[in-house]
Design a protein around this nucleic acid. Structure first.
Lengths: 197, 197, 197, 197
DNA sequence: TATGAATGAGTCTTCATTCAT
DNA sequence: CATGAATGAAGACTCATTCAT
């Protein structure tokens, strides 16, 4: 008789939005943005085509939202964890975090790589991406500077390249190749004179 | 009529094909495969849409051809140069070659990254890609083994990741960021104990 | 519970219906039937989409109701006023009434013109429209006949055309053109040998 | 074997464009812009949906083109005829021309009325409409001024209203009502003291 | 060989309408 | 009586591909 309360509606909306975001992430990451139609998403999420537009203005906005959420989650997780630990060895922690995230959010990282390359899409998520990047640089620059590395900027680029490259290869590795993430993480530790955790 | 006419035709065909391949590379690499229509290519190459189909069965085949040609050129250049130089320090040469190629064929590398990620396209160029990869592994494995690195496979993965990562960042760097390719190449030399050339 | 509650409900229903009709008129008239969605109306009236369907079977029925109400109001106003005045110069009164209505119900007239032109919509309000037209013809035919105009039918068509044309131009005139309604009314009086009121 | 010449293509394009414009005019005028889909037009013109987009950027542009062509034709016809006649009684000629055009281009006039009312569409054809209007005013103002009418502007408005109204009623008259165009034209002549031609 | 008009399947998007609450 | 999430049919538009010339 009486309509749903405001809270009930809000709850439904949250759930549905989450569902669509998740489905979008999965499909975009595995097939690529242009190879996924709105119909595909609707079918996969078991909703009607029109419903997506109830939550996202367009397919592009959905994509943007997927990425923003991914980056937000990443930053949040990073912040939350660090607040707890607060060790002096921040770099070690950072590396660990990246490898963990790679393992747990492979799809997000796939998507992340896909998107950086599409100029038109990159524009959409540029701001979020930049804040993520800034974060990494801030965190690592201090490390290299303190240790007396002679060219910290160059050092960061190499460091970032190594992580990016590892992420890239892990994420796009042939499915039947068991990528040795742990071994590689330890190797990275060694390169930078860090102890295994 | 005369045989020469035949040859001329052949020559024209070769030129046309080359033109289309080059145009395709440029557009695919800068805008992305899905954002470039056959009409775009025809317009950019100043030919008719139909003509493209005279040389390539489909847009997909054109893409595949672009990549195959890129990889073929790369391998040829690598082989030709090496035959000329024949230094004992193969790794040093290899690194140098990669950085040179990055600088000279930025577009090809952009495209290369873009394609790895699109499963459906990746399938098309898998073979060429694998032979390129094999080549790299063969060249580097020997190096790491000889030097007594304890885990050559892991070492290769790190090495490859670093190069891939550098390539990736160079190729997708913001246009107004002057990526210090030379400095980074020297840094890589240093890491592996190689001399500057 | 008490009978009063019933009445209150009825009152609320009437108010709601009126609100929706009014909102519909405003939006249809300013933007055009096809450029206004049910959501737009609901938003403007500050009610839910579903509620509209509680009062009107469909968007089309709402439109039809808007027009019917407009025509009904027009006829009622005409009748009520005439009952009060009952001058012998009916035409003079009629003209005055039309110009007054134009000034006061610009939106209705806009809508009226818009709708006459849409065959599918015209069908819906044909009956109401016809009864309005008949009324005008009946009122004016007598006038022209009495005065001995040689071709009353033709005269009526010219007369109606003039009024329609004036209404049309007034209603669709550029917003920054101050349409001289009064002057034109007087001019019409003069043409038909009527005195200024 | 050899491709069509430039002229052949141009000819084809002209014909097709004309066909689509004509079909568009017919359908828009009879059913209204929003009630005609691109598919409808394609079906009526016996072409594919896509072809329309080969000639017109969008449905809106098609509409705009239809109107522009209509107005252009009208002005051209007016100019051509006048050059031939060059009578001293321009108004008489003008009226005659309007009535003739009404009879011959009923559809265009239907469309013309429909469009004036749709703000969003009106914007698209405003310029063409204004030049037509200006023409009418220029032609008639002189007439009323010379004859010593005391308020030429008001006179023009009445005159324009009458013609607009007649056009409106003729164009939207019930199909089974035989609208007496000729008689009305003569009546208009009489009102302005003009002789029958 | 070369052209570009023509096709139509497929895509994104809108919106009137329904219905569980 | 009132809500707004959900549906799906319909529409505008794109573009790889074909084909007559």
């Amino acid at each position: 008789m009486s309509p749903r309360t405001e809270e009930q509606f809000e709850e439904i909306r949250e759930e549905r939005k989450e569902l669509i975001l998740q489905t979008g992430l999965e499909l975009f990451a595995t097939k690529g943005y242009h190879n996924v139609s709105v119909s595909d998403i609707a079918r996969a999420a078991d909703i009607s085509k029109g419903l997506m537009y109830n939550y996202f203005e367009s397919k592009e906005v959905l994509l943007s939202s997927v990425v923003q959420k991914g980056i937000k989650d990443l930053l949040e997780a990073f912040d939350r964890d660090k607040d707890g630990v607060l060790t002096k060895d921040e770099l070690s922690y950072f590396i660990d975090f990246i490898f963990l995230s790679l393992k747990n959010n492979k799809q997000f990282w796939r998507l992340y790589f896909m998107l950086i390359m599409q100029p038109e899409i990159y524009e959409m998520v540029k701001n979020e991406y930049m804040s993520l990047k800034e974060r990494v640089i801030k965190t690592t620059y201090a490390f290299f500077e303190e240790r007396g590395y002679e060219d910290p900027e160059c050092e960061i680029l190499i460091f970032a390249a190594m992580l990016d490259g590892l992420a890239f290869q892990f994420v796009f590795a042939d499915d039947n190749f068991q990528y040795p993430l742990e071994k590689l993480r330890d190797k990275v530790y060694k390169i930078y004179g860090l102890k295994k955790q």
